[in-house]
Structures are given as structure tokens and as C-alpha cells.
Amino acid sequence: NKFNKELQWATWEILNLPNLNEEQVKAFIDSLRDDPSQSANLLAEAKKLNDAQA
């Protein structure tokens, strides 16, 4: 389904953001699992944090 694909994509993207530490990655992945419908928003937040920590 749509959420499953978005969840998989967001998870992959977050795992590959180079500037997030392990705790941050875990927190984003946990949030994705808690509410897959928020995957686009969570991915945007993760990318923003990744850029800020570059």
C-alpha cells in the first residue's frame, strides 16, 4: 500500500543521511514506525536536521 512504500522510502533515506548521529536516526525511525502516515513530514524534518548539522 501507499503508506508502506512511503515508509520504506523514508526509512532508507533517513538511514542514508550522513550528518545524523545514531540516536537521531533511531528517533526518526521509531517515529516512522509509530505513525507511518507522517513519513513525508518526518523525512523533511530529518533532512532539515541533516543540513543544519552539515
Results as ranks from 00 to 15, higher is better:
residue 14 I to A: 01
residue 18 P to M: 08
residue 24 Q to M: 04
residue 5 K to M: 06
residue 37 S to Q: 09
residue 49 L to S: 03
residue 34 D to F: 14
residue 8 Q to E: 15
residue 8 Q to I: 08
residue 27 A to D: 09
residue 19 N to P: 00
residue 26 K to Q: 09
residue 11 T to Q: 02
residue 5 K to D: 15
residue 28 F to K: 01
residue 28 F to A: 03
residue 2 K to W: 14
residue 40 A to E: 10
residue 14 I to V: 08
residue 23 E to S: 13
residue 13 E to F: 07
residue 43 L to F: 06
residue 23 E to A: 13
residue 43 L to G: 01
residue 42 L to R: 06
residue 48 K to N: 11
residue 15 L to W: 07
residue 9 W to M: 12
residue 42 L to E: 01
residue 12 W to D: 15
residue 50 N to T: 01
residue 46 A to E: 00
residue 22 E to A: 13
residue 37 S to V: 06
residue 44 A to Q: 11
residue 10 A to S: 05
residue 48 K to I: 13
residue 54 A to R: 01
residue 41 N to R: 04
residue 53 Q to D: 03
residue 19 N to I: 02
residue 13 E to D: 04
residue 5 K to A: 13
residue 20 L to P: 00
residue 23 E to R: 11
residue 32 L to F: 04
residue 29 I to M: 06
residue 52 A to T: 11
residue 48 K to Q: 12
residue 11 T to F: 13
residue 33 R to T: 14
residue 23 E to L: 06
residue 11 T to R: 07
residue 11 T to I: 12
residue 31 S to A: 10
residue 30 D to A: 13
residue 14 I to K: 01
residue 53 Q to K: 03
residue 27 A to Q: 05
residue 21 N to F: 09
residue 11 T to V: 06
residue 20 L to R: 00
residue 13 E to W: 07
residue 35 D to I: 05
residue 16 N to T: 09
residue 54 A to K: 04
residue 37 S to A: 06
residue 53 Q to A: 03
residue 3 F to I: 10
residue 39 S to H: 15
residue 25 V to Y: 06
residue 22 E to G: 10
residue 15 L to E: 13
residue 16 N to Q: 14
residue 37 S to K: 07
residue 45 E to R: 07
residue 4 N to L: 05
residue 38 Q to W: 05
residue 1 N to P: 02
residue 3 F to M: 02
residue 15 L to F: 06
residue 24 Q to W: 02
residue 43 L to V: 15
residue 7 L to A: 11
residue 12 W to N: 12
residue 37 S to T: 04
residue 32 L to R: 00
residue 12 W to L: 07
residue 27 A to M: 12
residue 31 S to Q: 13
residue 52 A to L: 13
residue 3 F to S: 03
residue 52 A to G: 10
residue 33 R to P: 01
residue 36 P to D: 03
residue 36 P to A: 05
residue 4 N to D: 15
residue 46 A to W: 02
residue 19 N to M: 10
residue 9 W to Q: 13
residue 22 E to R: 12
residue 52 A to F: 09
residue 35 D to P: 00
residue 25 V to W: 03
residue 23 E to D: 13
residue 51 D to Y: 13
residue 50 N to K: 01
residue 51 D to K: 14
residue 9 W to L: 11
residue 33 R to S: 09
residue 46 A to F: 02
residue 49 L to N: 03
residue 47 K to L: 10
residue 17 L to G: 00
residue 39 S to T: 09
residue 3 F to K: 02
residue 49 L to I: 09
residue 36 P to H: 05
residue 32 L to H: 01
residue 25 V to S: 12
residue 31 S to P: 02
residue 35 D to F: 05
residue 22 E to W: 15
residue 20 L to M: 02
residue 44 A to T: 12
residue 47 K to G: 06
residue 52 A to R: 11
residue 16 N to A: 10
residue 35 D to Y: 06
residue 37 S to R: 05
residue 2 K to G: 15
residue 44 A to I: 12
residue 24 Q to G: 00
residue 18 P to T: 08
residue 34 D to N: 14
residue 12 W to F: 14
residue 24 Q to D: 04
residue 6 E to M: 03
residue 39 S to N: 06
residue 44 A to Y: 08
residue 6 E to K: 03
residue 17 L to K: 01
residue 11 T to L: 15
residue 7 L to Y: 09
residue 36 P to F: 11
residue 46 A to I: 02
residue 54 A to D: 12
residue 38 Q to H: 11
residue 34 D to W: 10
residue 31 S to F: 09
residue 4 N to K: 03
residue 24 Q to T: 05
residue 20 L to N: 00
residue 4 N to W: 15
residue 13 E to M: 08
residue 22 E to H: 12
residue 7 L to D: 10
residue 45 E to H: 08
residue 44 A to H: 12
residue 33 R to H: 15
residue 48 K to S: 11
residue 15 L to T: 11
